[in-house]
Design a binder for these strands. Structure first.
Lengths: 206, 206
DNA sequence: AGTTTCGGTGAACGCCTGTTCACTGACTAA
DNA sequence: TTAGTCAGTGAACAGGCGTTCACCGAAACT
């Protein structure tokens, strides 16, 4: 008997909710959230359309939940990656490999974020923007710890952090759209771009 | 009597076609192309739904036409901007101002491109991707002309060009989402990021 | 054991959609 | 002047949509 109830009822509800999220994510591989129908999702799960309302107020609400699922778990990953040791090139290689891996294992999630970041559903756009802002702040904190950040203004650190985060998103999108077999070309491009940025970083205070 | 006929008929058809594009662009401020209905567009123009087919095969077809309208005219602008004289900082300032201006005067077009670049309609995604590829190549040609490109491999020039183009798109999106009054902060961030990239560029061959 | 809670149901509401078809009537070309 | 072209029409079809409501039955609480 656990302290948290987690009865049969709550468990089933969570399972159905997850099924709805999974089904929606699948359907969203080929369309945008603003054209995703509630009936479409419930049909894919095998429940009545009305049951949808027991879990989400609307498809926009479901979208926000998907943002959480797609990006919520990435915060700690970013922290540990940046805190890792190694010289600049090693860290760049590791970062790009990590992005490639993540896109490979979570393609639908990444596609959803790329699509809805500037998509037609305002609450979802906002949710993604907030998550990316958080990423940038977290990256900034890690960058500030590094000895290379000595003499940098707080604003300039954040500027660099945003550049890294946006480049990360850009790279993820490039992997997503890469024809099978051309991923290494994308990775090589991303690494060289990051190397150039790192070079600029080292000479920022000249 | 012009050599090109351009009779009353053809003129009217072109006018209606443009009205359809304009109406669609307006409707697309609040939704994605994949959820845009053909009836919705014709209703906004004030013609029968069936008349839509006289101009476009589908809404995807209309989307591709919108890509042409939004990006087709930008090629020469990019060329002249990069060919302009001035030191690095002046050129950066001018480029960012140009982006800000363009977003101000063509917000719906920019929003459409941002939204559909990774949107749910494949032909439109492809059309945007092709235009951005062309931009990158054109930027690469201009960069190669510059004395700073001495000793650079062709591949590295293209790498830098892609970074500039993607940063341009990123900046345009940032202007789009900037709260009124915060545009100068966005511009300042973009300029510093470009300055850092330019710094990396200068030390690439060290 | 009795009562309440609540995830899921199925019918029904009014409205929307893309596409077809035969059609009209102003412009065009002979 | 006559014949043809063709942008735009309006009705009809067969479906889709989001949302409402009263209802069921098993789990949860007392």
């Amino acid at each position: 008997m656990s302290h948290i109830p987690a009865g049969i009822r709550q468990t089933q509800k969570e399972k159905t909710r997850q099924a709805l999220l999974d089904a929606a994510l699948g359907l969203l591989e080929g369309q945008s959230l603003s054209s995703l129908g509630l009936r479409e999702v419930t049909r894919a799960v095998g429940i009545a359309p009305t049951a949808f309302y027991r879990h989400f107020r609307s498809t926009a609400d479901l979208g926000v939940a998907l943002v959480e699922e797609a990006l919520g778990s990435l915060h700690e990953m970013i922290g540990t990656t940046l805190a890792a040791t190694g010289d600049s090139d090693e860290r760049i290689t590791r970062a790009v490999d990590l992005i490639a891996d993540h896109v490979r294992t979570h393609a639908p999630h990444v596609r959803f974020i790329a699509r809805e970041r500037h998509g037609g559903v305002e609450p979802v756009r906002t949710a993604i923007g907030e998550q990316l802002d958080r990423f940038a702040e977290e990256v900034a904190v890690e960058l500030a710890k590094h000895p290379e950040a000595k003499g940098w203004s707080e604003d300039d650190v954040l500027m660099l952090a945003r550049l890294y985060v946006d480049h990360m998103v850009m790279t993820a999108c490039a992997f997503l759209e890469a024809e099978p077999g051309t991923e290494e070309r994308v990775a090589d491009l991303a690494r060289r771009q990051m190397r150039l940025v790192s070079l600029g970083r080292r000479h920022w205070l000249d």
